[in-house]
C-alpha cells in the first residue's frame, strides 16, 4: 500500500437528528492518520452513524466533518468514497462470481490483482474463480473487504468487521488493519470485541446515547463499561 497519504478527520460539534430523534449529538473528535481508532459503545449508541458521516453516506445535521482541513461537503463525493472505503457490518455480495464482485468498484482489475487482494484478506487466490453463492459469513465478509481494498483506499471504515467471524477471518482482517496503519493509512473500526479493540486500537472513542462519553488511548478507557448497556 505504497501510495497511502496521511488522512486526518476532524469532527466539529457534529450531530445527527432524524425528526425528533437525536442519533448523535455534539461530537468533537480527531481521527488521526497512521493510527487505528476504535469506536466503542453499547448498541444503539450511534457508532455506525458516526462511521457513515466519514464517507458521506450521511451528512451531519449540525456541525461539520473535515478531512485534512477541508469540509467533506466541499470534496467530490464519489472521489471521497473511493479514498474512504466503508465495509458494512452485513456482508452483501453484488454479483454471481467473486472476481466480478471485486471488479464492481474497479472494472479494470486484473485477475492477478484480484488474487493478491484475496491473499491480503487471507483467502486462497483460487477464490477468484468461486461463485459468490455458498460462501460462509466470514468468507463473504473478507470478499467484501477485498472489494473495498481494490480501490486502494487511504482510509478503511470497518463496521463490526469480526462479529460472528471465525478466528482465521478475524485475524486476517486485523492483519489488513495493521498493514494499512503501517503504510500511514487511517483505520476506523466499530467493535464490540474488547480483546480486538485492545490489540488494534491506538485511540478509542466511546459513544453512549449518541454522545461522546470518553476518548483517549485504550489503556485509559474502561472497556467493560464502554460496551455495557446503561
Amino acid at each position: 500500500m505504497g501510495r497511502t497519504r496521511a488522512v486526518t478527520f476532524v469532527l466539529e460539534a457534529a450531530g445527527v437528528r432524524r425528526g425528533d430523534t437525536v442519533i448523535l449529538e455534539d461530537i468533537t473528535a480527531t481521527i488521526r492518520s497512521g493510527r487505528c481508532t476504535v469506536i466503542a459503545g453499547p448498541s444503539g449508541a450511534g457508532k455506525s452513524t458516526l462511521l457513515r458521516l466519514l464517507n458521506r453516506m450521511l451528512d451531519p445535521t449540525t456541525g461539520r466533518v473535515l478531512l485534512d482541513g477541508t469540509p467533506l461537503a466541499a470534496l467530490d463525493v464519489l472521489a471521497l468514497r473511493r479514498r474512504v472505503g466503508l465495509v458494512a457490518q452485513q456482508p452483501t455480495l453484488l454479483t454471481d462470481a467473486v472476481l466480478d464482485d471485486l471488479r464492481v468498484g474497479r472494472p479494470d482489475l486484473t485477475e492477478e490483482e484480484a488474487r493478491s487482494l484475496l491473499a491480503e484478506t487471507g483467502l486462497p487466490p483460487a477464490f477468484a474463480e468461486r461463485p459468490t453463492a455458498g460462501l460462509s459469513g466470514g468468507e463473504a465478509q473478507r470478499v467484501c473487504l477485498a472489494r473495498t481494498l481494490a480501490l486502494r483506499p487511504e482510509v478503511l471504515l470497518l463496521d463490526e468487521p469480526t462479529s460472528a467471524l471465525d478466528r482465521a477471518s478475524a485475524e486476517a482482517i486485523e492483519g489488513v488493519v495493521n498493514d494499512l496503519r503501517a503504510a500511514g493509512g487511517t483505520a476506523v473500526l466499530v467493535s464490540h470485541d474488547t480483546g480486538q479493540a485492545r490489540r488494534l486500537a491506538d485511540d478509542v472513542l466511546v459513544l453512549r446515547d449518541g454522545r461522546l462519553a470518553e476518548q483517549g488511548p485504550p489503556e485509559d478507557v474502561d472497556y467493560l463499561r464502554a460496551v455495557a448497556s446503561p
Binding site: M57, L78, R81, G85, A88, T92, L94, V104, L151
Partner: peptide, 13 residues
C-alpha cells in the same frame, strides 16, 4: 438497500 449502499460506498454514482 444494503446492495445499493454497498455500490455507493465503492464510489459508484
Amino acid at each position: 438497500r444494503p446492495a445499493i449502499e454497498a455500490r455507493l460506498s465503492l464510489g459508484l454514482t
